[in-house]
Design a protein around this nucleic acid. Structure first.
Length: 272
DNA sequence: CCGCCAGCCTGAAGGC
DNA sequence: TGCCTTCAGGCTGGCG
Protein backbone atom coordinates (compact mmCIF):
# COMPACT_ATOMS: atom_id res chain seq x y z
CA UNK A 1 0.00 0.00 0.00
CA UNK A 2 1.72 3.11 -1.16
CA UNK A 3 2.37 5.67 1.55
CA UNK A 4 4.86 8.53 1.29
CA UNK A 5 8.09 6.45 1.05
CA UNK A 6 6.63 4.20 -1.63
CA UNK A 7 5.43 7.17 -3.68
CA UNK A 8 8.82 8.85 -3.34
CA UNK A 9 10.57 5.65 -4.42
CA UNK A 10 8.42 5.42 -7.52
CA UNK A 11 9.12 9.07 -8.35
CA UNK A 12 12.86 8.56 -7.96
CA UNK A 13 12.68 5.66 -10.40
CA UNK A 14 10.54 7.46 -12.98
CA UNK A 15 12.73 10.55 -12.83
CA UNK A 16 15.81 8.66 -13.98
CA UNK A 17 14.02 7.29 -17.02
CA UNK A 18 11.55 9.93 -18.05
CA UNK A 19 12.98 13.42 -17.61
CA UNK A 20 12.90 15.00 -21.06
CA UNK A 21 10.84 12.17 -22.53
CA UNK A 22 7.56 12.65 -24.39
CA UNK A 23 4.43 10.57 -24.64
CA UNK A 24 3.50 9.89 -28.26
CA UNK A 25 0.19 8.31 -27.45
CA UNK A 26 -1.93 7.12 -24.57
CA UNK A 27 -4.84 4.81 -24.03
CA UNK A 28 -7.45 4.83 -21.31
CA UNK A 29 -8.45 1.25 -20.58
CA UNK A 30 -10.50 1.45 -17.41
CA UNK A 31 -13.15 4.13 -17.16
CA UNK A 32 -14.98 2.94 -14.08
CA UNK A 33 -13.02 5.01 -11.59
CA UNK A 34 -14.02 7.29 -8.77
CA UNK A 35 -12.69 10.13 -10.91
CA UNK A 36 -13.04 8.81 -14.47
CA UNK A 37 -10.45 10.37 -16.76
CA UNK A 38 -11.49 11.67 -20.19
CA UNK A 39 -9.21 11.49 -23.22
CA UNK A 40 -9.53 15.24 -23.81
CA UNK A 41 -8.10 15.86 -20.34
CA UNK A 42 -4.94 13.99 -21.30
CA UNK A 43 -4.52 15.18 -24.89
CA UNK A 44 -2.66 18.40 -24.04
CA UNK A 45 0.32 16.42 -22.73
CA UNK A 46 0.94 14.57 -26.00
CA UNK A 47 4.39 15.15 -27.51
CA UNK A 48 5.33 17.55 -24.73
CA UNK A 49 8.59 17.10 -22.83
CA UNK A 50 8.37 16.02 -19.21
CA UNK A 51 10.20 18.78 -17.37
CA UNK A 52 9.89 17.66 -13.76
CA UNK A 53 8.40 15.26 -11.26
CA UNK A 54 7.07 16.06 -7.88
CA UNK A 55 5.64 14.20 -4.97
CA UNK A 56 2.90 16.11 -3.24
CA UNK A 57 1.95 14.14 -0.13
CA UNK A 58 0.83 10.80 -1.57
CA UNK A 59 0.27 12.23 -5.04
CA UNK A 60 2.69 11.99 -7.96
CA UNK A 61 2.76 14.85 -10.41
CA UNK A 62 4.39 14.91 -13.85
CA UNK A 63 4.93 18.40 -15.25
CA UNK A 64 5.06 19.02 -19.00
CA UNK A 65 6.72 21.78 -21.02
CA UNK A 66 3.41 23.39 -22.01
CA UNK A 67 2.19 23.95 -18.46
CA UNK A 68 0.05 20.85 -18.22
CA UNK A 69 0.43 18.10 -15.69
CA UNK A 70 -0.59 14.55 -14.89
CA UNK A 71 -1.66 13.81 -11.35
CA UNK A 72 -1.64 10.26 -9.97
CA UNK A 73 -2.76 8.81 -6.67
CA UNK A 74 -2.11 5.11 -6.19
CA UNK A 75 -4.84 4.45 -3.64
CA UNK A 76 -4.40 0.99 -2.17
CA UNK A 77 -3.14 -1.11 -5.02
CA UNK A 78 -2.05 1.31 -7.73
CA UNK A 79 1.21 0.77 -9.62
CA UNK A 80 3.19 2.93 -12.02
CA UNK A 81 5.57 0.79 -13.99
CA UNK A 82 7.89 1.37 -16.93
CA UNK A 83 7.72 -1.59 -19.24
CA UNK A 84 8.41 -2.68 -22.79
CA UNK A 85 5.18 -4.60 -23.16
CA UNK A 86 1.59 -3.82 -22.42
CA UNK A 87 0.55 -7.19 -21.05
CA UNK A 88 -0.19 -6.12 -17.50
CA UNK A 89 -3.27 -6.86 -15.43
CA UNK A 90 -5.80 -4.28 -14.31
CA UNK A 91 -4.44 -1.49 -16.46
CA UNK A 92 -6.19 1.85 -15.98
CA UNK A 93 -4.22 3.76 -18.62
CA UNK A 94 -0.98 3.51 -20.54
CA UNK A 95 1.34 6.11 -22.02
CA UNK A 96 3.67 5.31 -24.90
CA UNK A 97 7.10 6.89 -24.97
CA UNK A 98 9.52 6.85 -27.87
CA UNK A 99 11.12 3.49 -28.55
CA UNK A 100 8.07 1.42 -27.71
CA UNK A 101 8.25 1.61 -23.98
CA UNK A 102 5.29 2.37 -21.80
CA UNK A 103 4.40 4.01 -18.55
CA UNK A 104 1.63 1.80 -17.22
CA UNK A 105 -0.83 2.79 -14.53
CA UNK A 106 -2.59 -0.25 -13.13
CA UNK A 107 -4.81 -0.63 -10.10
CA UNK A 108 -6.68 -3.79 -9.08
CA UNK A 109 -8.95 -2.15 -6.56
CA UNK A 110 -9.43 1.06 -8.49
CA UNK A 111 -9.06 3.39 -5.50
CA UNK A 112 -6.45 5.32 -7.44
CA UNK A 113 -6.77 8.59 -9.32
CA UNK A 114 -5.47 9.86 -12.65
CA UNK A 115 -6.12 13.44 -13.71
CA UNK A 116 -4.84 15.71 -16.44
CA UNK A 117 -4.96 19.42 -15.65
CA UNK A 118 -3.04 22.69 -16.01
CA UNK A 119 -0.22 23.14 -13.45
CA UNK A 120 -1.84 26.18 -11.99
CA UNK A 121 -4.97 24.26 -11.06
CA UNK A 122 -3.22 21.47 -9.16
CA UNK A 123 -3.16 23.25 -5.79
CA UNK A 124 -6.80 24.20 -6.09
CA UNK A 125 -8.11 20.79 -7.01
CA UNK A 126 -10.55 19.50 -4.36
CA UNK A 127 -8.35 16.46 -3.78
CA UNK A 128 -5.27 18.57 -3.08
CA UNK A 129 -6.38 21.78 -1.47
CA UNK A 130 -7.47 20.30 1.87
CA UNK A 131 -4.24 18.40 2.53
CA UNK A 132 -2.20 19.25 5.60
CA UNK A 133 1.56 19.78 5.68
CA UNK A 134 3.65 17.18 3.92
CA UNK A 135 5.27 14.91 6.51
CA UNK A 136 8.76 15.60 5.12
CA UNK A 137 8.34 19.34 4.69
CA UNK A 138 9.61 22.21 6.83
CA UNK A 139 6.00 23.22 7.33
CA UNK A 140 5.54 20.03 9.37
CA UNK A 141 7.14 21.47 12.50
CA UNK A 142 6.70 20.81 16.24
CA UNK A 143 4.58 23.97 16.57
CA UNK A 144 2.41 23.05 13.58
CA UNK A 145 1.72 19.56 14.95
CA UNK A 146 1.26 20.60 18.56
CA UNK A 147 -1.31 23.27 17.65
CA UNK A 148 -3.37 20.70 15.73
CA UNK A 149 -3.16 18.14 18.52
CA UNK A 150 -4.21 20.68 21.15
CA UNK A 151 -7.43 21.41 19.32
CA UNK A 152 -8.61 17.83 18.95
CA UNK A 153 -10.51 15.35 21.03
CA UNK A 154 -9.40 12.47 18.85
CA UNK A 155 -6.91 9.68 19.48
CA UNK A 156 -3.35 10.33 18.35
CA UNK A 157 -3.43 7.50 15.82
CA UNK A 158 -6.56 8.85 14.14
CA UNK A 159 -4.98 12.29 13.95
CA UNK A 160 -1.81 11.05 12.29
CA UNK A 161 -3.82 9.00 9.78
CA UNK A 162 -5.77 12.12 8.80
CA UNK A 163 -4.22 13.65 5.68
CA UNK A 164 -5.60 17.04 6.66
CA UNK A 165 -3.44 16.98 9.79
CA UNK A 166 -0.26 15.63 8.24
CA UNK A 167 -0.06 14.28 4.72
CA UNK A 168 1.86 11.22 3.66
CA UNK A 169 1.46 8.76 6.52
CA UNK A 170 -0.71 5.66 6.41
CA UNK A 171 -1.36 2.73 8.71
CA UNK A 172 2.11 1.18 8.47
CA UNK A 173 4.14 4.28 9.23
CA UNK A 174 1.77 5.56 11.91
CA UNK A 175 2.00 2.26 13.82
CA UNK A 176 5.78 2.26 13.48
CA UNK A 177 6.07 5.90 14.51
CA UNK A 178 3.96 5.49 17.65
CA UNK A 179 6.18 2.61 18.71
CA UNK A 180 9.29 4.71 18.20
CA UNK A 181 7.96 7.54 20.34
CA UNK A 182 6.40 5.18 22.93
CA UNK A 183 2.83 6.44 22.59
CA UNK A 184 -0.27 4.31 22.96
CA UNK A 185 -2.35 4.68 19.76
CA UNK A 186 -5.43 5.66 21.77
CA UNK A 187 -3.70 8.48 23.63
CA UNK A 188 -5.85 11.59 23.53
CA UNK A 189 -4.19 14.04 21.13
CA UNK A 190 -4.67 17.08 23.32
CA UNK A 191 -2.78 15.54 26.26
CA UNK A 192 0.43 15.37 24.23
CA UNK A 193 3.10 17.85 25.29
CA UNK A 194 5.05 20.21 23.04
CA UNK A 195 8.23 18.24 23.73
CA UNK A 196 6.53 15.03 22.69
CA UNK A 197 5.24 16.72 19.52
CA UNK A 198 8.77 17.78 18.77
CA UNK A 199 10.01 14.23 19.21
CA UNK A 200 7.20 12.97 16.95
CA UNK A 201 8.14 15.34 14.12
CA UNK A 202 11.81 14.40 14.35
CA UNK A 203 11.06 10.67 14.44
CA UNK A 204 8.53 10.89 11.60
CA UNK A 205 11.10 12.41 9.29
CA UNK A 206 13.81 9.95 10.35
CA UNK A 207 11.45 7.02 9.82
CA UNK A 208 10.32 8.19 6.39
CA UNK A 209 13.85 8.95 5.20
CA UNK A 210 15.02 5.53 6.29
CA UNK A 211 12.04 3.86 4.57
CA UNK A 212 12.80 5.75 1.35
CA UNK A 213 16.40 4.59 1.61
CA UNK A 214 15.01 1.03 1.77
CA UNK A 215 12.81 1.66 -1.29
CA UNK A 216 9.59 1.56 0.73
CA UNK A 217 7.62 -1.33 2.21
CA UNK A 218 6.24 -4.24 0.20
CA UNK A 219 3.44 -5.71 2.25
CA UNK A 220 0.90 -6.90 -0.26
CA UNK A 221 1.68 -5.95 -3.80
CA UNK A 222 3.65 -2.72 -3.80
CA UNK A 223 6.47 -2.50 -6.36
CA UNK A 224 8.51 0.43 -7.64
CA UNK A 225 8.58 1.72 -11.21
CA UNK A 226 10.92 -1.07 -12.22
CA UNK A 227 8.57 -3.70 -10.78
CA UNK A 228 10.83 -4.39 -7.80
CA UNK A 229 9.84 -4.81 -4.16
CA UNK A 230 10.89 -2.52 -1.33
CA UNK A 231 12.83 -3.59 1.75
CA UNK A 232 11.48 -1.63 4.71
CA UNK A 233 9.07 -4.45 5.68
CA UNK A 234 12.09 -6.26 7.13
CA UNK A 235 12.51 -3.39 9.61
CA UNK A 236 8.97 -3.30 11.01
CA UNK A 237 8.87 -3.26 14.80
CA UNK A 238 5.12 -3.66 15.31
CA UNK A 239 3.21 -3.60 12.01
CA UNK A 240 1.94 -7.12 11.23
CA UNK A 241 3.86 -8.39 14.29
CA UNK A 242 0.87 -9.52 16.35
CA UNK A 243 1.86 -12.11 19.00
CA UNK A 244 5.55 -11.68 18.27
CA UNK A 245 7.91 -10.43 21.03
CA UNK A 246 8.64 -6.72 21.16
CA UNK A 247 12.18 -5.93 19.98
CA UNK A 248 12.74 -3.84 23.11
CA UNK A 249 11.06 -5.70 25.96
CA UNK A 250 9.89 -9.09 24.58
CA UNK A 251 6.27 -8.41 25.53
CA UNK A 252 3.97 -9.78 22.84
CA UNK A 253 2.77 -7.24 20.28
CA UNK A 254 -0.99 -6.66 20.33
CA UNK A 255 -3.42 -5.92 17.53
CA UNK A 256 -6.58 -3.90 18.10
CA UNK A 257 -9.18 -2.38 15.81
CA UNK A 258 -9.14 1.37 15.97
CA UNK A 259 -11.45 3.32 13.70
CA UNK A 260 -11.96 0.07 11.81
CA UNK A 261 -8.23 -0.24 11.10
CA UNK A 262 -5.79 -2.80 12.44
CA UNK A 263 -3.47 -1.15 14.93
CA UNK A 264 -0.32 -2.83 16.21
CA UNK A 265 1.55 -1.80 19.36
CA UNK A 266 3.54 -3.03 22.35
CA UNK A 267 1.35 -2.86 25.48
CA UNK A 268 4.47 -2.51 27.65
CA UNK A 269 6.43 0.14 25.72
CA UNK A 270 3.35 2.10 24.63
CA UNK A 271 1.29 2.65 27.76
CA UNK A 272 -1.62 5.02 27.85
C1' DC B 1 -17.87 22.18 12.78
C1' DC B 2 -16.33 17.79 14.32
C1' DG B 3 -15.95 12.96 14.58
C1' DC B 4 -17.31 8.53 13.15
C1' DC B 5 -18.31 5.00 9.84
C1' DA B 6 -20.14 2.68 5.68
C1' DG B 7 -18.91 2.01 1.18
C1' DC B 8 -15.96 1.72 -2.76
C1' DC B 9 -13.15 -2.46 -4.93
C1' DT B 10 -10.93 -7.26 -5.65
C1' DG B 11 -8.05 -11.06 -4.32
C1' DA B 12 -6.04 -13.65 -0.64
C1' DA B 13 -6.59 -16.11 3.37
C1' DG B 14 -9.03 -18.31 7.05
C1' DG B 15 -13.07 -20.90 9.02
C1' DC B 16 -16.27 -24.60 8.82
C1' DT C 1 -12.76 -29.39 -1.88
C1' DG C 2 -15.76 -25.53 -1.74
C1' DC C 3 -18.46 -21.97 -0.05
C1' DC C 4 -18.72 -18.06 2.94
C1' DT C 5 -16.67 -14.46 5.64
C1' DT C 6 -13.12 -11.41 6.77
C1' DC C 7 -9.34 -8.59 5.79
C1' DA C 8 -6.39 -5.27 3.38
C1' DG C 9 -7.04 0.35 3.58
C1' DG C 10 -6.92 5.59 1.37
C1' DC C 11 -10.39 8.47 0.90
C1' DT C 12 -15.17 10.47 0.41
C1' DG C 13 -19.73 11.54 1.61
C1' DG C 14 -23.36 11.32 4.72
C1' DC C 15 -25.11 11.22 9.27
C1' DG C 16 -25.60 12.43 14.22
Amino acid sequence: MPELPEVQTIINGLKKQLIGAKFESFKIIQKKMRYPVEARQLEPILNQSIVSFRRKEKYLILYFANGYSLLFHLGMSGKLILSNHIKHSYVIALFQTKGDSYLIFSDVRRFGVLLGLPDKEVSFHPLIKKLGADALSKEFSPTYLWKKLQRSKRAIKDMLMDQQVVAGLGNIYVCELLFRVSLHPQTSAKTISFDKSKQMVTETKKLLRFAIQKQGSSVSDYVNSAGKKGGFQFFFSVYKKEKEPCVRCQTLIVRIKQNNRSTFFCPQCQKR
